[in-house]
Structure formats: C-alpha cells, structure tokens
Design a protein around this nucleic acid. Structure first.
Length: 310
RNA sequence: CGCGAGGUAGAGCAGUCUGGUUAGCUCGUCGGGCUCAUAACCCGGAGGUCGUUGGUUCAAAUCCUCCCCUCGCAA
C-alpha cells in the first residue's frame, strides 16, 4: 500500500479524492484542505467538500491557514506520495520533497495552456474548442511542473462552466485511475512544459460577472456561459441588477441596438447584440428569487421591453 | 444590531406614500368556441385569512408595533 497525502478543497478535488479511496494500492493517510469558511448571508461556517468526505472515511484532516508556515506536522506523517487537486495554496518545497514517490497534481487544462485558478471558466470564455486534464509533477511554480499525461475533452457549443466541469471531473478521475499504479512504480516519463506556449487563467474577478452587451455576440455568449451556473452574471437596467442563469444564441437577427430588451419570445428574455439575439430562459431580478423568464415576463419583465442594459 | 429590496389567488406583479364601491393586471388552470394550424384568438368559470401579532380608526392590503421568512449587496 502506498500512503497518500491528498491536498484539495472544492467539489472538483472531492471527486479526485473519492477515486483515491477506491484505488486498491492507495491508503489515504492525511487530507490537507483549506480552513472552514463563513458562507452566505448568515456567515455559517462551512467545511470544504473535501473535508466532509475525508471525515466520512475517518481520515485525519489538516487545515492550515498558511501552509507556507504551518507544514511541520505534515512532514512527519510518513506519506509516500502527495496528490493535489485544486488545493488553493502554494505547497512549500519542503513538503513536496518529503515524500519518496513524489508529489503530483491534476490540473483542469491542457498545459501549458491556462495555468492558474480558473482554467475551466477561461477555456470557455476564450472560446476554445477543447481543453482537458493534465497529470503533472509538482514544482515550486504554480502549474509549471513536468507533464506526465493528458486527456482531452471537447468543449461543446452548449457547454457552460457547470457541464464542462462535470466532464473534466470524470476525465480527471479516469486519468488518475489509469496512472496511479504507474506513479507508485515510478513507471512514467515527465515532459517539461514549453514556457513560451504558456497562457494563464487567473481567477474570476468580481467585475467580470457584469456583462456588457457590446462587441461580438459570440464573445459575450462565451463570457456568460463560462460563468454559469457559478458565480453567475448580471447586467443593469432601470438601476437594478438582473442576473442571468441561462443563455443561448438565437438564429434570429435584429436591427435593434446592442443591449436592448426585445419582446419576449416563447416566454424567454431576448436581448439584441450585434444584430443577433441572446436568449435567456432563467433570470433573477434584484431583490427577487430566480425564476423562469416566463414568470419574469408576467411581472416586472414586461415593463422593461424596449429598455437597454448598461 | 453591516446596507438595501420584498412577502397580495398555482406563478410573476400592480395597488400601500394621498386609509373607504364587487382587491386589479399578465400567465397558468378548468369549461366552451373559432381556426388547416399555432407560444394564436374569442367567451366563461374556479381560485386570495392581502406573511404573522397587537394597536389606531366608523373603516386597514394601505398608518403604527412585534415577530417570522425570502432575496440583492457587503464580507
């Protein structure tokens, strides 16, 4: 049995950890994850998904606030290998070097493209046609380690962040399963990344959640679906926010100005952009619950036809 | 006490500021009609303790008070 220390935090990491528990040759001896965070309006302290799963398996959980300074404990656990996925902190070299079989990371892009914290969202927002998972050795620089294996995932025009993330999680789980035993046996080669081809996927900034209905309709469409269903996007009209929880592009054309709210079609909210029509099926008006565009139309929505988003 | 919005038929809203005829609109639903046909149209019906408590008043959805809940922002 190979003693594995897992490091990860959100849902994506949880799925990888699940697979580790299923691996016959793996014994998860420790899980390192981010501290519990206050969540929502009520600021309820909520544990990371990974922590919940680890506790169900009675695995010791470590939640250092600053791993850079609080890693002493981890060095003496006797782990053979480290697997990380979306942990959220830089792992110090002392930790990476304390395991004989090495430290590996699963990253949700085809490296060296899209290094960083939001590779899935950026892949869609950039209009890319494919992305994937990369299994790599960890290095001191974020997502810059030598690459061991990749699996590609097509990006469909209808994918949003949620559906693509799901595909990538499946892909990542499969990749880990295929390679885990070989990692244990040191039966792999690691190819350095071509630095000159590296691109970056910085985490989503709050202001990116506001959409501006200008420019190419496809860019805006990609931008929106890259941020759905989380964190969501909005535009302003009549001095209030309108959040969009769904988007598609209509075949129709229009001569209305960018950002104008067109008459509802089939109960859906339609917005003009660059001669084309963006269609929203589910929305949320500021101060209100999210609801089908059809319901929105029956109330506030119908008073907004002809108005423009800004 | 972080800031703000709101709780009115199954749904989304108006009405509240300037209390007072049968609480209205857009949908849905049920029944009927029209059409080659429709996310179309016409006619008719059912469905509401106006979030909860107490108060002011001849009279409260509307004014005052308590509480509960929802949502946006900030964190």
């Amino acid at each position: 049995m190979v003693k594995v220390m897992f490091m990860g935090t959100p849902m994506f990491a949880k799925r990888i950890l699940e697979q580790l528990y299923l691996e016959e040759n793996a014994e998860v001896i420790a899980v390192v994850t981010q501290p519990d965070q206050p969540v929502g309006r009520k600021q309820v302290m909520t544990p990371p998904e990974v922590k919940v799963l680890a506790q169900q398996h009675n695995t010791p959980v470590y939640q250092p606030v600053k791993l850079r300074k609080e890693y002493g404990e981890l060095l003496s656990l006797g782990a053979d290998m480290i697997i990380t996925c979306a942990y959220g902190q830089i792992v110090p070299n002392e930790v990476l070097n304390c395991v004989p079989l090495g430290a590996f990371n699963l990253h949700a892009s085809l490296l060296p493209k899209l290094r960083g914290g939001a590779p899935i969202q950026r892949a869609i927002m950039n209009g890319m046609m494919k992305t994937g998972m990369t299994l790599m050795k960890m290095s001191s620089r974020m997502d810059a380690g030598d690459m061991i294996a990749k699996s590609e995932v097509e990006i469909e025009q209808s994918d949003d962040y949620g559906t693509l993330e799901e595909k990538l999680m499946d892909s990542g789980v499969k990749l880990l399963h295929e390679w885990f035993d070989r990692l244990c046996a040191k039966d792999y080669t690691a190819e350095p990344q071509k630095e000159e081809e590296a691109t970056f996927a910085p985490i989503i900034r709050p202001e990116e959640e506001k959409i501006t209905f200008t420019g190419n309709y496809r860019d805006v469409y990609n931008h929106i679906r890259g941020l759905l269903p989380r964190p969501g996007v909005y535009a302003k009209v009549e001095d209030r926010k309108l959040k969009f929880w769904h988007v598609s592009v209509s075949e129709m054309t229009t001569d209305r100005p960018d950002g104008e709210i067109l008459p509802f079609i089939g109960g859906n909210l339609c917005v003009a952009l660059a001669g084309r029509v963006l269609v929203f099926e589910e929305v949320q008006y500021e101060g209100k619950k999210r609801c089908a565009a059809r319901d929105f139309k029956n109330g506030v929505g119908r008073t907004l036809v002809g108005k423009r988003f800004y």
